[in-house]
């Protein structure tokens, strides 16, 4: 790992100058608190049971509580010092758009592979994913998408004989 100074917009620094909390630690701790509470509260809808016959809620509530406490400890610690592994990490700004393209690509596949079939669904997915690359223009993305789709069809449908229709019901395949 390099030790380049934090780039502008890098979240590895402190909030509000030198005296504020370490933002990565604060965010991590807060995430754990939120998720811990979510599981604990969600788990309390289920039967807790007794120590002999633990219900469905027993373990989630206990673990959710532990996670919340751990999250709080991390939040408190974030006011005292920066986790050195984070402070020294070489991070660029969060690539929101590229991340959105990748997530969109995967979700599109999940939603449409049953209806459109493997071929069309994969074509769009790989196109969206390829667009996320630095300097990949739509034309090049299309070439990558066509190539990868063909490759995947050969590997999964011809060679591995997966039971996936190439064209789905929506396209009358």
């Amino acid at each position: 790992m390099s030790t380049t100074p934090a780039a502008p917009g890098d979240h590895a620094g402190r909030l509000g100058g030198r005296s504020g909390p370490s933002l990565p630690d604060l965010m991590a701790g807060a995430t754990f608190v939120v998720l811990g509470l979510a599981f604990a509260i969600g788990g309390s809808q289920y039967d807790v049971g007794t120590a002999l016959r633990m219900g469905s809620g027993y373990v989630p509530i206990a673990l959710g509580g532990i996670l919340t406490v751990l999250g709080l400890v991390i939040v408190v610690a974030s006011f005292r010092g920066v986790d050195p592994t984070v402070a020294n990490a070489d991070r660029g700004p969060i690539p929101w758009q590229r991340m959105g393209l990748l997530v969109g690509a995967i979700l599109f596949f999940g939603f449409t592979v049953g209806g459109l079939g493997l071929g069309p669904s994969l074509l769009v997915t790989t196109f969206l994913a390829a667009l996320a690359g630095h300097g990949t223009r739509p034309g090049r993305a299309l070439v990558i998408a066509i190539g990868l789709t063909a490759l995947c069809l050969v590997v999964f449908v011809s060679l591995l004989q997966l039971r996936l229709p190439i064209l789905g019901d929506w396209l009358g395949g």
Partner: peptide
């Protein structure tokens, strides 16, 4: 490997 895959998987049409 490709040959082996081809050899042991029977060919069947889809759809």
């Amino acid at each position: 490997a490709t040959l082996a895959v081809l050899a042991v998987t029977s060919l069947a049409a889809c759809g």
